[in-house]
Simulated scan of single mutants.
Amino acid sequence: MSGKLAVQIAKLLGAGRIVGTGRNPDSIKQVLESGADAVIDLKRSDEEIADSFKKEARKVTISFLIFCGDARQKY
């Protein structure tokens, strides 16, 4: 819930491009419906996740990063 809210707030504040993350297919869909331009699937391998972040970072200048969730939960 907090991640989807963060996406909506970022849009309202004028974020140019928003990249979300998720593990659950339904949550990923909801993050996109909330206004994210892209979502990185955290169920992929560490290397694929890192590559996805690098790919997205090349598209924009990152102004800020919002992390929502339990940092101890990897998958």
Rank of each mutant, 00 (worst) to 15 (best):
M1P: 08
M1V: 14
M1C: 14
S2F: 15
S2L: 14
G3I: 01
G3P: 01
L5H: 11
L5M: 15
A6R: 05
A6T: 09
A6G: 14
A6Q: 07
A6P: 02
A6S: 15
V7F: 01
A10E: 03
A10I: 01
K11R: 15
K11W: 05
K11M: 04
L12Q: 10
L12M: 07
L13G: 06
L13P: 06
L13D: 13
G14S: 07
G14A: 07
G14W: 06
G16D: 11
G16H: 10
G16N: 09
R17M: 08
R17K: 13
R17E: 08
I18Q: 00
I18M: 10
I18G: 02
V19T: 13
V19Q: 01
V19A: 05
V19F: 04
V19E: 00
G20S: 07
G20T: 06
T21P: 02
T21G: 02
R23W: 04
R23V: 09
P25Q: 14
D26S: 13
S27R: 13
S27Q: 15
S27Y: 13
I28F: 08
I28H: 00
I28D: 02
I28Y: 01
I28T: 04
Q30R: 08
Q30A: 15
Q30S: 15
V31A: 04
V31Y: 01
L32P: 00
L32W: 01
E33F: 10
E33Y: 10
G35T: 08
G35S: 09
G35M: 01
A36C: 13
A36K: 00
D37R: 10
A38K: 14
I40M: 05
I40N: 01
D41R: 09
D41T: 07
L42Q: 07
L42G: 00
K43T: 14
K43M: 11
R44D: 07
R44I: 05
S45L: 12
E48T: 07
E48H: 14
I49L: 05
I49Y: 02
A50W: 06
A50Y: 04
D51N: 12
S52Q: 07
F53K: 02
E56L: 07
E56Q: 12
A57Y: 09
R58P: 02
R58L: 08
K59L: 11
V60I: 10
T61N: 13
T61F: 12
S63Y: 10
F64I: 06
L65F: 07
L65A: 08
I66V: 14
I66W: 02
F67I: 11
G69A: 09
G69T: 11
D70A: 12
D70K: 12
D70C: 05
A71D: 05
A71T: 06
R72L: 14
Q73K: 12
K74M: 04
K74D: 06
K74G: 03
